Computed example of a mutant assay.
Amino acid sequence: MKIVYTKRTPLEEGSLPFDTVYYPTIEEALPVADLIVLAVPHTEHTVNIINRDSIKLVKRGVRIVNIGRGSAIDEDVLFEALDNGTVNSVGLDVFQHEPHIDKRYLNRHDVTISPHLGPFTKDNHIYIAKRQMENIINVLIENGDGINPV
């Protein structure tokens, strides 16, 4: 498998135990991908990464998995792409209008839905508990705005 990726800054050479190819922009990476995995936070730069313009760049029959934020995909565009075969299938554990899931996803053979379980590891639970305590201390004791306001 050839792994291509895009992010603001490239990974250090040799930082992963396998070879990767870096593309500076998603527009450069999309045309070469057979499978697109979105693992992005919700920011002004990540809202609707998959949109009318970007979907025109993908290979016909591409598969998309979104494990980041539901806001990364324009769902109307995604349904059109599923219906016309541009996108072969999607795997989603996040949705644009959470906690509500668009009913068009239900009963489709080309959509796999799962609960957002990626962060439920022992290490992550410990990390979350520590960060919650830091936030509580910051707000209630230090009169701060919170370390990680949501």
Rank of each mutant, 00 (worst) to 15 (best):
S15V: 00
S15A: 10
P17N: 13
F18K: 09
F18W: 12
T20D: 05
T20A: 11
V21Y: 15
V21S: 15
Y22M: 12
P24T: 10
P24H: 01
P24Y: 04
T25P: 02
T25H: 04
I26H: 03
E27R: 12
E27I: 02
E28Q: 13
A29E: 01
A29F: 01
A29C: 01
L30K: 11
L30S: 08
L30C: 11
L30P: 13
P31Y: 13
P31M: 14
P31E: 11
P31H: 13
V32W: 10
V32Q: 14
V32F: 13
A33Y: 00
A33I: 06
A33F: 02
A33D: 03
D34R: 03
L35H: 06
L35G: 00
I36T: 06
V37K: 00
L38W: 01
A39S: 14
V40G: 01
P41R: 07
P41C: 08
P41A: 09
P41K: 00
T43A: 08
E44H: 10
E44P: 11
E44G: 10
H45G: 12
T46G: 10
N48P: 08
N48S: 12
N48K: 15
I49H: 13
I49C: 07
I49M: 15
N51S: 07
R52G: 13
R52D: 15
D53F: 11
D53L: 07
S54T: 14
S54P: 05
S54Q: 07
S54E: 10
I55D: 03
I55M: 04
I55K: 03
K56R: 14
K56D: 11
K56W: 05
K56N: 06
L57M: 14
V58I: 11
V58A: 07
V58S: 04
V58P: 00
K59C: 05
K59L: 07
K59F: 07
R60D: 08
V62P: 03
R63Y: 14
R63Q: 10
R63H: 09
I64G: 00
I64L: 08
I64T: 04
V65T: 05
V65S: 04
N66M: 00
I67S: 04
I67K: 07
G68L: 09
R69F: 09
R69W: 06
